[in-house]
Design a protein around this nucleic acid. Sequence first.
DNA 1: TAACACCATCAGGTTCTCAT
DNA 2: ATGAGAACCTGATGGTGTTA
Length: 300
Amino acid sequence: MLNYKQLYYFWHVARSGGVTRAAQQLHLTPQTISGQVAELEQSLGVALFNRVGRRLVLTAAGRQALEQAGAIFSLGAELEHSLRHASQELTMQVGITASVPRTLAFELLAPAMALATPLRLICHEERPDQLFSELARHKLDMVLTDRPLPPDSGIRGYNHELGRSPLALFASPALAAQARKGFPAALEGLPVLIPGEKSVTHDRLLAWYHQQGIHPHLVGQFDDSALMKSFGKAGMGIFPAPLAMGEEITRVYGVERIATLPEVTLSYYLVSAGRHLSHPGVKAVMEGASQRLAALENKK
DNA sequence: TAACACCATCAGGTTCTCAT
DNA sequence: ATGAGAACCTGATGGTGTTA
């Protein structure tokens, strides 16, 4: 029978690069770690490390063990997390990247708040890589993002597409009127506000301008989409947003929709730590998403 | 090249848990 | 209460890397 604790010590040694560092992390002495790893090797009948000088180098078996141990501890954490939450008030920890419009995030999360079991929602906004790392450590139940978790990120997570919405361009009434006269050629020379470089919209919009043979006159770049809209409201420039947000943007910011760009579609994703969505709140978000997005687009 | 620091491991003892 | 075994400790040792 595999000793879970010994495997855990091995996992720490392999990841930290040595017995001493692993001992520091685990608040144990190196002797204990070394002894337990040696026992694990003996019980498995295979060397997990080659002793090269005073360094420990993973053998092929060690690399395989490291990879599978990661999956085992991830499952263990998932089990612990779900059991702990089963006996407590249901909470849902959500990470939201800055590039997801806040109103859209609200609409997507709303089905979770309508569950029969009361749920406490805790939202976090961080850089995508930080959110994905928190998700992998089971600190979050899901991440809402416009850019899926890359397969080569080394982080364990599963992308679930929630829905798509074409991109639309908005501006203050005067600027919008100028842009509409002979759209899209009329955009040449008109000021543009653009989301930050980490946003998918940033790349897609610039590519669209390039395709149309128009040189965008960039006057501002914003990680915070609400700030970009405020500048747009003041007539500082044309700005992009998903069509699904059109009704809200025109109503709240008093701007007008210039045009929809059907060839530029934005996707939104729910990223979960496990393949199956066991959390009822996460499940509700996933199930209600396409309906919510469609309802938003019909409002326009 | 010698001195030193660092690291892994061995030996032997203690503490804790669990079954009887 | 007691004994067995697991887990951990301290002290010591020897090998290796670094630096003056």
